[in-house]
Design a binder for these strands. Structure first.
Length: 572
RNA sequence: CGGUGAGUGGCGCAGCUUGGUAGCGCACUUGGUUUGGGUCCAAGGGGUCGUAGGUUCAAAUCCUAUCUCACCGACCA
């Protein structure tokens, strides 16, 4: 490819709205352009990358026994009514009407369509298991599209759906998909982790997320320093820190005027936040004989609302009590609430339950207790896992401590069970001739998001540093002042032809630009290898090779260039 | 949806307070210059100032309404 016949579309400045590196670089390197909020056009260079990612995903899916299909983006509303998601999905589901005023949706996902397909096409246990996938455009009317392609409304997803007679078959395919996903991210060349994810409202379901590690990630991932344990912080189990301590002090009341937050109280009393407990008042579940439930955490810990919502005493969805309702119910302001003599059910986090002689609110304004102890000063309570894990916590599998890093979610695999198949009555006849509802798994990869995540993980001050496997071009030819030097032009054209003949993806910068412009553009676009042709080295029949990722430079004889680059590519 | 801010050539912005010829940098075109790291000079093309209404002799500027977009919060590939 020659730049003169291509749309290179690089820019010096990035748009004001671009916040994260990948977004800025995708605009500057000419990969994408925004059409409207959350809607992007993929320019030639961006599309080349996208297609490479998709090709790797497709290849690994095929190898793992999945079969490619393609389903419509526009889906009839009645399908969504049959699964119950027409109401349940919410405003993220873009609803449209056709000319006959019939309701349709732009597909945010395809469980309904695939389940309806399999229901009609598959009727015997002999046809199972079956794993179907597509790589296709999805539309989710995100509340807040963000970070360019990272969270856009229209995006490309690889979604696979597997169908099984029983759970053990589902588990097998699930493991196979887990492995396929690892293969995919390894081949693309990303640093990633499969992590245990929140299993959501579907009871007993197993789920893993795949995260690309990057500082700009929106998710916190907890890892064990010495085992393979990894989980999303929102679902990582927090175990008690340390052994249960015996109490040595007795309850004393202290005045804490103007001290409301844990920090202020701890400072005032000159104790650490770890020696305090904080008491949060939350809405109780409907079948509980109280309006509110108190949740007690160690002062330095944060409540995990997902865990809280799953507790039988706590309302789901989770809701904090308002300041007014707390004052009405307990007659004390929010800063002085504590578990001692509190008139409501009390749930204590595991780590708060092992400390002794702690500081807590005295349920009277501007007063706190010191020297409080469980079982002595508070007798009615239960213990549960309610907090977010923090760095340094013991790993829940008992090996090592936890470390927390940021991740970008690029894949999610899920054992769905029969949620959709039973709602839509999708089943087959078993060996014994009985109708049986199928078990399902679903497996998603954000193909467009991978492109952004790859940039987040691989860039420098000059631009993108593509992993070899997804680079838009393998090699750039950069001739110095070609239009003034017939012999440079000759070598450049020859190398271009040679690369093409060898099947190497080459971008030949034949623009009449100054060298600096070409260097900057090629580095911005992030082409892994480049060949610089200048008068300087041509006397020795040599050109300069430069590696974008390692910065390595060396002189090559003209006749060995193609072999060298081919070799360098294979080596990575 | 809540909070904050912004809409002026393709991009980045100034001008608005105090109404009076729409401006700068990048990009683009032409000519020259330069040529191993975004050269320099000159000439040029391109803008209903988000939209609608109002005030006024006169509105990018003041007033009203409206739309769009971005950033911070709860969701997700």
């Amino acid at each position: 490819m020659r730049t003169s016949e291509y749309l290179i579309a690089t820019q010096k400045e990035s748009p004001a709205e671009a916040e994260i590196v990948s977004h800025k670089l995708m605009i500057r390197a000419g990969l994408v352009r925004k059409l409207a909020s959350g809607l992007y056009t993929w320019l030639p260079t961006g599309l080349r990358v996208l297609n490479k990612v998709a090709a790797i995903v497709r290849d690994e899916m095929n190898k793992a026994g999945a079969i490619e299909i393609s389903m419509p983006v526009v889906q009839p509303a009645d399908l969504w009514e049959s699964s119950g998601r027409w109401e349940a999905y919410g405003p993220e589901l873009l609803r449209i009407k056709d000319r006959h005023k019939r309701d349709f949706v732009l597909g945010p996902t395809h469980e309904e369509v695939i389940t309806s397909l399999v229901k009609n096409e598959v009727s015997s246990y002999k046809q199972l298991p079956l794993n179907l996938y597509q790589i296709q455009t999805k539309f989710r009317d995100e509340v807040r599209p963000r970070f360019g392609i990272m969270r856009s409304r229209e995006f490309i997803m690889k979604d696979a759906y597997s169908f099984h007679l029983d759970m053990s078959s589902l588990e097998q395919t699930y493991q196979r998909m887990h492995q396929a996903y690892c293969n995919i991210f390894e081949r693309i060349g990303l640093e990633f982790r499969p992590v245990i994810a929140d299993s959501g409202s579907i009871g007993g379901a197993v789920s893993h997320e795949f995260h690309v590690l990057a500082a700009s990630g929106e998710d916190d991932i907890a890892f064990s320093t010495s085992s393979g344990f990894a989980a999303n912080v929102e679902s990582a189990e927090a175990i008690a820190v340390g052994e249960k301590q015996p109490g040595t002090q007795s309850l004393e009341t202290v005045e804490t005027l103007n001290a409301k937050t844990i920090e202020e109280v701890a400072n005032l009393l000159d104790v650490s936040a770890q020696q305090c407990v904080k008491t949060l008042i939350v809405k109780a579940a409907e079948d509980v004989n109280a309006n509110f439930v108190a949740v007690v955490l160690r002062g330095d810990h944060q409540l995990n609302e997902i865990k809280a919502a799953k507790h039988p005493l706590i309302a789901s969805p989770f809701e904090m009590a308002s300041e007014e309702s707390i004052e009405q119910t307990f007659g004390v302001s929010i800063g002085s609430i504590g578990p001692v003599n509190l008139e409501c059910p009390i749930i204590v986090d595991r780590s708060a339950a092992v400390i002794a002689d702690f500081v807590c609110g005295a349920n009277k304004n501007d007063l706190h207790f010191t020297g409080a102890n469980w079982d002595k000063d508070v007798t009615e309570y239960e213990v549960a896992d309610l907090r977010n894990v923090v760095a340094g916590d013991p790993s829940p599998d008992g090996e090592g401590t936890l470390e927390i890093r940021k991740g970008i979610e690029v894949g999610h695999i899920f054992q769905l069970g029969d949620k959709y198949s039973s709602a839509m009555n999708c089943g087959v006849l078993t060996e014994s001739g009985k109708h049986q509802v199928l078990q399902m798994g679903c497996y998603g990869i954000g193909v467009t998001r991978i492109v952004a995540a790859a940039i987040e993980q691989n860039h420098d001050d000059y631009g993108i540093k593509w992993p070899e496997a997804i680079a838009p071009f393998t090699v750039a030819i950069i001739p110095m002042n070609m239009h003034k030097s017939p012999r440079i032009s000759e070598v450049a054209h020859k190398l271009h032809a040679d690369f093409l003949a060898s099947g190497v993806e080459v971008l030949f910068d034949d623009r009449k630009e100054r060298p600096g412009v070409m260097f900057n553009d090629m580095e911005l676009i992030g082409i892994p290898h480049s060949i610089v042709i200048g008068e300087r080295n041509l006397d020795n029949q040599q050109v300069e090779y430069k590696n974008r990722n390692t910065g390595e430079k060396q002189l090559l004889n003209i006749d060995e260039v193609v072999a060298f680059v081919t070799n360098a590519t294979g080596a990575n």
